[in-house]
Simulated assay, not measured.
Amino acid sequence: MKTQSQQSGVAMVEFTILLPFFLLLLLSLVELGRAFYTYAELEKISRDSARFLSGEFKGTDGLYTLDDSNITLTKNLAVYGSINGGTEAIIPALSTSQVEVTLTGNYVKVEIKYPYQPVMSFIPGYFTGKDIDLNFTLVSSYSMRVL
């Protein structure tokens, strides 16, 4: 049977060995939560923009056209949260060039392609010594019938 003096410091050594793995797990979960939050915001933005655009068409002849002013207003709403535009995007690094607005028949579609960049992307490169690109594109689209 081992005595107390022989077990002294074993817990500290075990903690030191396992700490990097627990930190990696914790940071990975935080990054995954951030990605889900960003995607949920993109979904909300594309839905609100499509809803706005579907109400912008006037007339009852059944023929709808999409003009540049409607596209600009919709892109401003998607990026800045206001049809008048702004200086700060709702989501960092989101620009109007990443928003695509289309009209097909009686349906408007707003599609946002956002290049997601993880904050913790340096961690795999730290362990492997190689640069690993963890960036990916989040795509959110919403279609709505013209009112």
Rank of each mutant, 00 (worst) to 15 (best):
V119A: 11
S28D: 06
S49I: 02
S46H: 01
L29V: 15
S69W: 02
E100S: 15
L53H: 08
T96Y: 01
L42P: 00
L24A: 09
Y37A: 09
L138D: 03
L25N: 09
L103F: 10
F57G: 06
L63M: 06
T74I: 05
R47E: 14
I45W: 05
S95H: 12
D68R: 00
S46K: 03
Y37M: 13
A35I: 07
Q98T: 14
F136N: 11
V119M: 13
D61H: 02
F136L: 06
G62A: 06
A35R: 02
E56A: 13
F52D: 06
D68T: 10
V99K: 03
K109T: 15
R47I: 13
A93V: 14
E100G: 12
Y107V: 14
D131N: 09
A93N: 15
F136K: 05
Y37S: 13
G85M: 04
G125A: 04
Y64D: 03
L94H: 05
K58N: 12
V30F: 08
E100A: 13
F52C: 01
E43L: 12
K130T: 07
T38M: 05
L32K: 06
Y107W: 13
Y37K: 07
K58C: 01
A50H: 00
L42V: 04
S54F: 03
Y80I: 09
L77E: 10
G125I: 02
E100I: 13
E43P: 03
T104V: 13
T102R: 07
D61R: 04
R34I: 08
Y37E: 14
E31P: 04
E56S: 08
L77H: 07
T137A: 02
T96Q: 14
T104N: 14
T65Q: 08
N135D: 14
V110E: 00
E31C: 05
T60Q: 08
P118Q: 00
L25P: 07
D131P: 00
F36A: 14
S28M: 10
I90A: 06
V139P: 08
N135H: 08
G59Q: 00
V99Y: 04
P115E: 14
E41R: 10
N106F: 04
L32Y: 10
F52L: 15
T102Q: 11
Y37H: 13
T38D: 05
D67Y: 01
